[in-house]
Computed example of a mutant assay.
Amino acid sequence: MTDENVLRTLMRHRRLTRAELAAATGISKPTVGESVRRLGEAGLVVDTGERTAGGRGRGRVGTYYALAADIGTALAVSVAPEGVVAERIDAHGEVVARAEEAVARPARPEDVAAALRDAATGTGGPLPRLAVVSAADPVDRASGRMIHLPDSPFLLGELDPHDVLAPFVTGPIIVDNDVNWAARAEREDARDFAYLFLGEGLGGAIVSDGEVRQGAGGLAGEIAHLITVGPHGRATRLIDVFDDLGLRQADSTAIDVDRLLAAIAAPAAADAQRVREALGEAVGGVVAAIVALTDPAYVVIGGPWGTHPAILAAITSATTAQPRHVPIRAARRTDEPSLTGARLDALDRLRAAIVQT
């Protein structure tokens, strides 16, 4: 336990003396000194060669210790239709290398696999100890392979990130859906909430007792086919609402985000209000179903059009009159939310792996 405390403290600080370690951990200096010696012999902690300014009335000279440079890194990866991003992170949580590879549309599995390999090698350095992958398609819980569902706009197919990344990682490879990772990035201290991603694609995640619920096959939260209220008050699938409003991309079920944002701010106020109300009612129907089945404390709305103030206001208005009303709020993580969630998980797993060494 002492060694773990010392290691985790050095993960939060770049360098510390034994006295500083003792103060940060609440462990006695002699006990910390023995721990530093053991960790040094194990190759996990090193003397940096730096010394405090001691002597001549300023106290004893202190030695600075730090994690060994070769203690290991982790890979955080985002696989999305616009491309692949790979980041190599160290035990301090710093991104030490980043590589990006574009993918043409439609995103064919062989093209995505090639981009994934190039991004993994592009981060350089020794092989990471593990990888955490965020994928834009649903992910089979048992196999980790990506699944193509009807009306999924990205067509990544049955790509298997495990097979692709195995030569580039020495340890485990964890793969999950991008919306689940975005929800994890929003988790903070909350234990029960729902997350809806509203962008080119539609997705949801349920966080219960602090954990993202994946379902038997990993398909929990796939909301595109959920029955809700259509623009004319009729029951319809959520994905079809955007077809009725003329907000899909050509020859695709993907939502045209630019056209949608233009529609809710149209010069004709009545037209803009009609679209906002239709979207608010449609998403509000999804919220009602989620609240009835999962009882979240609140619902987080993310995605490039989901976080727009007019959309949030419309959803809030539509849900306020529902029998079981819960608060609606915008996602706080808006810059690469899925990669952020994957990065946070990769850091936790890397630190745990180092401690267990």
Rank of each mutant, 00 (worst) to 15 (best):
G204A: 02
E82I: 00
V355S: 10
H325G: 14
L10F: 10
Y64R: 09
R187S: 15
A136L: 00
A269G: 14
I255L: 06
S208D: 08
G215W: 01
D118C: 11
R98E: 15
A318Q: 03
R51V: 15
H225I: 03
A107L: 04
A314L: 04
A115Y: 04
E20N: 07
V326P: 01
K29R: 13
R187E: 10
P106A: 13
V283Y: 01
I223S: 05
V103C: 11
S152C: 10
T63I: 15
D240C: 05
G171T: 04
P267Q: 07
A330G: 13
P267S: 11
A321I: 07
I89R: 06
D345C: 11
L347S: 07
A220R: 00
G122M: 07
L196M: 02
T319W: 11
S143P: 01
W181R: 04
A142F: 07
P30R: 04
P150I: 02
A86S: 15
A183N: 05
R117G: 14
L127A: 14
P126D: 14
G171C: 03
P309H: 06
A265P: 00
G280H: 03
V103Q: 05
R349A: 10
L202V: 00
H148S: 14
Y195N: 01
T236C: 12
A278R: 04
I223K: 02
V103G: 06
I227M: 12
L156Q: 06
A265Q: 08
L10T: 12
E158S: 15
E222V: 01
G43N: 08
G203E: 01
D178A: 15
M146N: 03
A19E: 10
R12V: 13
P138E: 02
M146S: 06
V207R: 01
F193M: 03
T25N: 10
E41I: 10
D137Y: 06
V291C: 03
A53K: 05
V169I: 13
V46H: 12
T31R: 08
D251E: 15
R58K: 15
H148P: 02
G302W: 01
V133K: 00
E110F: 08
I239F: 10
Q249H: 12
G302Q: 01
V283P: 00
R88I: 13
L238C: 07
Q273W: 09
